[in-house]
Write a protein that binds this DNA or RNA. Structure first.
Length: 901
RNA sequence: GGGCUCAUAGCUCAGUUGGUUAGAGCGUUGCGUUGACAUCGCAAAGGUCAGUGGUUCAAGUCCACUUGGGCCCACCA
């Protein structure tokens, strides 16, 4: 112990100090080693634009606990860190910065803009990493990866080419989710639906033959009417049956469109007649294909109306909407409007309302990929914790849709597709549904078809005609197209990959099961022919105390960095973990962290007490060897038993991902058993050798258990222990010594505590003369009931009154007995062999009556054949034993009762 | 529309395959504390386990329905 320990634990300096030392001594690094089993977690790579929030804090604390735990258990435990380039998010951030200079990315041009993004990444990209370090994360930073690293990019490109060669990637014209603000396509997962309150408008479409008559259609997006190419009705609909085939005049544009019949039309909704806009609605698109309708796109990519929109061209889509409504209304085409709840897709990056938009995009055909991934989860090769997420996963996988992977942004992995102008056989770049690649047809020879070159390396000329006039596809890949390779693309050395892959556990939040988890499983099979990880632990979403999702924009977020500054990282970690029930969402408030801080302080002070009273020369012994020579007394035996019971429990809980239970087991052991009882009880005998050894060993071992949860404080104290070597990170997890678990001792002590508490309660009621003293010897043989405690208190009360009880206010040990002493009462209890007296305390008629009625019930139960034949044998036996016990007990009580008379 | 999930003390939540007396933290109240710790200790009060019905010798726990929250998925214009 080099310096005095203060009364309070100061996390601030301690944390930065130890993190630095751990890093400098390479304690985070993990290498393949033949004598160890591998354990590997790949971090869910945070966005480079990310700032640590509570979700990260929780997610990474869990991973850190697992890694530190496994490391101490003797695994080669690798935590692979890194960040994600986060295509749209990062591009948006840089564009915002540019906007402050009055620039758009187009003003710079692609290359210069990308330079700016890299520049930004150099400056700010490490923010989140620094913050993870503050949290204490034991990542192997020497392996830090970025999804745009060169090697990583090669993997991304290779993945694309492999899929292309297998015919699993195709280009197609489809109605996809388009964000007019980001001006890019989005996958279905990137456009979550949210309910909005809109309006349903009823519009009149007049018949060509009879302009005075019309059919009424309902729509929520009236501006799309400009692209209508039909009106559809259900063939079964009697109202409209004879109108099928009739020609209508589209209002405002005066185009002719036909009434068609399609079974997909819901007769109940609106008027039962629906306008068909194949270029602006995914359903209408399908209908349009089926009926060979024309596809008229009426919008620019930025959401303004285009030249097909007649007078409205150039207007924003929502401005156009109100103008169109006005005009329709003026001309008598607007019948009515009503409020209508509808769910519309929103961009997951900027929350703009998505526009379903017909455009040419790249897709991955998912069904073949999903098959092995479904199988792996069904047959248990991959397990979700908690299990219910399995269902969510399977449901999505079994209904999987093709994945739109092209994005019209600049920051990301550029699609490795090149076009040769010479070889392109007049393939139109203009939208044309007829030219859509049929996803079902195998592409014969992808490298030459239509002058399309797909290549792992950058070609400088066309491999067919040798023309130099080639150019690369403008689009980049979806960020998740790189993330899904994360579990293996992060390993650059084959030896590492062979050793650590498949990885062990994936820890993540439910909202990215589809984005990431499912796709990683598919990629694992597709590219490595193996599962990517064995266990998937899904933790809850962090919410505020109102149950709202914590987010910056809502202003309800607790900032983990502020919590660390105020209470310390250990307090933050412990507070989070102690309430992480399996997969339940977490409602968070600051008090949790106060509890964590208090616990840290408790650990600190208990350690301080022990260190102050420790004789280092006494404790440098092997516990087992020592144990053979020394006859330990019950208090020391008890705390060892409790420690190993706790160890067993924590082990089990960590192995089954019950982090909160493990944390709480430790908490209650340390606080309520080790501090509240043990340290109090040993005070009178603290100089004794066996007590020195036991208190030291229990502290030292408990610190190791605490370390994965609270790495900093455990290290700080560890370093002050006289026998400590190296870092606590390098210590072994304590080995379970079941022979030291003694349930009988535990029970005896528990009884003693009950008794002591009862006496404490009585103390205030005693009116006694403090001048004299009396020792009351009590023996307890079985757990006291509330009733017997009441009796006991009455009993002692009387004794006190009769005998004028004494006061001492110290715990004393005499004759190997433990005395618990209170102001007005001094009781010496032989805690060992408390075997004889309590019968006397259970002598009441009440107790006997109760027992008798219980016996009756039990007898009835055991007489019941349903029970004896159907209930598990152990339970029946246990019940039988209980009955025998009860009979015996009753007998004893009777005897005591008689004896007292 | 489909799926998941929750309802337990004033508050936030635990409660393992059904099995004696349903737990913790905070809050409240009372008592205590100059020697590890007020970021403390001890104790008390506080529960018809949302409701109804069912299965069972036995239900907070299993089943059905009802009520009221939360979340996810889905193309109803």
């Amino acid at each position: 112990m080099s310096e005095e320990l203060g009364k309070q634990y100061n996390p601030k300096d301690t944390e930065t100090k130890w993190y630095k030392i751990w890093e400098q001594n390479n304690l985070f690094s993990a290498k393949p080693s033949p004598d160890k089993l591998p354990y590997c977690i790949v971090i869910p790579p945070p966005n480079v634009t990310g700032i640590l929030h509570m979700g990260h804090a929780l997610n990474n604390t869990i991973q850190d606990i697992l890694i530190r735990y496994k490391k101490m258990k003797g695994f080669a435990a690798l935590w692979m860190p890194g960040t994600d380039h986060a295509g749209i998010a990062t591009q948006n951030v840089v564009e915002k910065a540019l906007a402050k200079e009055g620039l758009r990315r187009q003003d710079l041009g692609r290359e210069k803009f990308l330079d700016r993004v890299w520049e930004w990444k150099q400056l700010y990209g490490a923010t989140i990493i620094t913050q993870l370090k503050k949290l204490g994360c034991a990542c192997d930073w020497s392996r830090e990866r970025f999804t745009m690293d060169e090697a990583y990019s090669r993997s991304v490109r290779a993945a694309f080419v492999v899929l292309w060669e297998k015919g699993l990637i195709y280009q197609g014209d489809k109605v996809i989710n388009w964000c007019p603000r980001c001006q890019t396509a989005l996958s279905d997962e990137e456009a979550p639906h949210q309910e909005i309150l809109g309006k349903l408008f009823y519009l009149k479409y007049p018949f060509k033959d009879n302009l005075n008559d019309s059919i009424i259609v309902a729509t929520t997006r009236p501006e799309t009417m400009l692209g209508d190419t039909a009106v559809a009705v259900n063939p079964k609909d009697k109202r409209y049956k004879k109108l099928i085939g009739t020609t209508l005049i589209l209002p405002l544009l005066n185009r002719e469109i036909k009434i068609i019949s399609d079974a997909s039309v819901d007769m109940e909704f609106g008027t039962g007649a629906v306008k068909i806009t194949p270029a602006h609605d995914p359903n209408d698109y399908l209908t349009g294909k089926k009926h060979k309708l024309e596809f008229i796109n009426v919008m620019h990519p930025d959401g303004r109306m285009n030249e097909n929109a007649g007078n409205y061209s150039g207007m924003d889509r929502f401005t156009a909407r109100s103008h169109i409504l006005q005009d329709l209304s003026d001309r008598g085409y607007l019948v009515k409007e009503e409020l209508h709840k509808l769910s519309a897709g929103h961009c997951y990056r900027c929350h703009t309302i998505i526009e379903p938009y017909l455009s040419r995009q790249w897709f991955v055909k998912m069904e073949p990929l999903a098959k092995p991934a479904i199988e792996a989860v069904k047959n248990g090769k991959i397990t979700f914790h908690p299990a219910r997420w399995t269902k969510v996963y399977l449901n999505w996988m079994e209904n999987i849709q093709d994945w739109c992977i092209s994005r019209q942004i600049w920051w990301g992995h550029r699609i490795p597709v090149y076009y040769c102008k010479e070889c392109q056989t007049g393939k139109s770049q203009i939208l044309n549904p007829k030219s859509q690649t049929n996803p079902k047809s195998k592409i014969q020879n992808p490298k030459i078809e239509n002058g399309v070159i797909v290549s792992r390396t950058n070609p400088d000329k066309c491999p067919i005609c040798g023309s130099m006039d080639i150019y690369q596809d403008e689009d980049v890949l979806d960020t998740w197209f790189s993330s899904w390779l994360w579990p293996f693309a992060t390993f650059e050395q084959k030896a590492d990959l062979d050793y650590f892959y498949p990885t062990s556990t994936l820890v993540t939040a439910p909202e990215i099961i589809f984005f990431w988890v499912a796709r990683m499983i598919m990629a694992g099979f597709e590219f490595k022919q193996q599962i990517p990880f064995k266990d998937v632990y899904i933790h809850g979403t962090v919410r505020d105390s109102q149950g709202k999702k914590m987010s910056k924009s809502l202003g309800n977020a607790l900032d983990p960095l502020e919590i660390i500054a105020e209470y310390g990282a250990d307090a933050l970690r412990f507070g989070l973990i102690s309430i992480t029930t399996q997969g339940q969402d977490i409602y968070l408030s600051k008090e949790r962290f106060q509890q964590g801080r208090n616990f840290a302080n408790k650990i600190w002070n208990a350690s301080r007490f022990i260190l102050i009273n420790l004789k280092p020369e006494d404790v440098n012994v092997d516990l087992c060897v020592f144990f053979k020579h020394e006859q330990l007394d019950i208090v020391n035996r008890w705390i060892l038993s409790r420690f190993y019971t706790t160890l067993e429990k924590v082990d089990k809980e960590l192995d089954s991902f019950k982090f909160n239970e493990a944390a709480n087991s430790l908490y209650s052991f340390f606080w309520h058993e080790f501090c509240d009882w043990y340290l109090e009880l040993i005070k009178p005998q603290i100089g004794q050798k066996q007590t020195q050894v036991v208190m030291y060993k229990v502290l030292e071992k408990t610190l190791r258990l605490i370390h994965p949860f609270m790495p900093f404080i455990s290290e700080e104290i560890w370093q002050r222990l006289p026998c400590a070597k190296d870092s606590i990170m390098q210590q072994n997890w304590p080995h379970l010594q079941s022979e030291l678990i003694n349930k009988k001792d535990e029970l005896q002590m528990e009884l003693a505590f009950d008794l002591i508490n009862t006496i404490r309660n009585m103390r205030a009621e005693l009116e006694i003369n403090p001048a004299s003293r009396i020792n009351i010897q009590l023996t307890v043989i079985s757990k006291l009931t509330q009733k017997s405690l009441e009796l006991l208190s009455g009993y002692i009360k009387n004794l006190a009154k009769v005998n004028n009880l004494t006061l001492t206010d110290k715990y004393i040990a005499q004759n190997n007995q433990y005395a618990v002493v209170f102001k007005d009462l001094h009781i010496v209890m032989p805690l060992e062999g408390i075997a004889d007296v309590v019968e006397q305390l259970k002598k009441t008629n009440l107790k006997i009556d109760k027992l008798k009625s219980e016996i009756k019930i039990k007898e009835a139960m055991l007489a019941n054949k349903n029970f004896t034949t159907r209930a598990p044998k152990e339970i029946v036996d246990a019940e039988k034993n209980k009955l025998i016990d009860m009979h015996e007990q009753a007998k004893k009580l009777e005897a005591v009762k008689n004896g007292l008379r």
